[in-house]
């Protein structure tokens, strides 16, 4: 890789000197340049160059991302022995998927993570509106503090929240007791484990959503607000009639991103809930179950079938969101 980098550095520098030296020599240079440009347009030269530039990412994506999709599809029709090796079993995995109670509850849990995760978007929107106001002081301090959860490793975040949620000494229950509420054992109680994970999920994405929405708000031309103000619209009216409709593309993006993120919940379950937790069935996500089945129980074929179904769900949900966007997203 470094070899390649240095070759690239040397290449242009060398050719630059060569062309500098050649060009003053007379009328031949421009003609040669034009001819080269003409040739560059032709299929051959350009195709070779394209191949050169696309090769690293193309091969990498092909080997590690595109080929595995096909393989996952193939594996989903196989059964794996304990020492590797697999036999073709047709639709058996898919048939057991249908009758797997763990899977259906994992899908239901994941659906809840998606829906609860969306609740963070209105919060982010209000934050973006308040923080993004022209002339607001201290923006970078607020933004840094609110963005910390976004950049922090989910494994570490989960450990910190495990401590906060602790039923005997946790800060959350301590603060709740100050207002007279007896807090639960958040992460070991099957009734609250899912909510507890979802809250951490929202907590760690609010800053991201806020930054994206703030960029969207700041991209709205000032003249719209001036026109609205001339018409006598107050701040609330301006927000509802100018900001909100013009922000729908950003809101749409944040929604799609949030749902895709929630569909992939894994780290929080792995560290916050953990494999020995009694509340695991009520809170585990599809990806967690997939990891458990494929790599702990070594049931790779079954895991592959699960992966393939989830992939179809992700594509379907994203596709549905794109279809529905025509109804409410305005592209100025």
């Amino acid at each position: 890789m470094t070899e390649m980098a240095t070759r690239d550095v040397a290449g242009p520098a060398g050719s630059r000197n060569a062309s500098r030296a050649a060009s003053p020599k007379g009328g031949a240079a421009p003609a040669a340049g034009r001819r080269r440009r003409g040739r560059g347009r032709g299929p051959n030269t350009s195709a070779w160059w394209a191949l050169f530039f696309l090769a690293p990412t193309g091969i990498g994506l092909g080997v590690f991302y595109i080929w595995p999709v096909i393989q996952t599809f193939y594996y989903s029709f196989t059964s794996w022995g304990p020492f590797g090796g697999h036999t073709f079993t047709g639709l058996a995995n898919y048939r057991s998927l249908l009758h797997d109670p763990a899977l259906s509850s994992a899908f239901l849990n994941t659906l809840w993570y998606c829906l609860l995760g969306l609740l963070g978007i209105p919060v982010s929107l209000v934050l973006a509106q308040v923080l993004g106001r022209r002339g607001r002081k201290g923006v970078s301090v607020y933004r840094t503090l609110m963005f910390l959860p976004v950049i922090t490793m989910p494994a570490a975040v989960a450990i910190v929240w495990r401590w906060l949620y602790n039923g005997d000494y946790g800060l959350v229950d301590e603060l709740l007791s100050k207002v007279g509420i007896k807090g639960p054992y958040w992460i070991s109680d099957p009734h609250t484990a899912l909510i507890a994970v979802a809250i951490v999920g929202i907590w760690s994405t609010v800053g991201y959503n806020m930054v994206v929405l703030m960029a969207g708000i700041q991209g709205i031309p000032r003249t719209y607000y001036e026109a609205a103000e001339l018409d006598g619209a107050g701040p609330v009216r301006q927000f509802l009639s100018v900001t909100l409709p013009l922000l729908t593309p950003s809101i749409f993006f944040v929604m799609v991103y949030s749902v895709i993120g929630s569909l992939q919940t894994f780290d929080l379950i792995y560290v916050l809930i953990g494999p020995t937790n009694a509340a695991l069935p009520q809170s585990q996500s599809v990806i967690y179950l997939f990891y458990q089945d494929s790599f702990i129980n070594n049931n790779r074929g079954y895991g592959a079938a699960m992966a393939f179904v989830l992939m179809l769900v992700v594509i379907a949900v994203t596709g549905l969101q794109f279809r529905l966007q025509k109804r409410w997203v305005h592209y100025g």
Binding site: V63, P68, Y75, F266, I287, F290, A307, V314, I315
Partner: peptide
Amino acid sequence: LSVLLVPSQLLVIPQYQI
């Protein structure tokens, strides 16, 4: 573009095999 649609976690079985 199609690669973007596939959640990366779902490819880990073949990636592990590779």
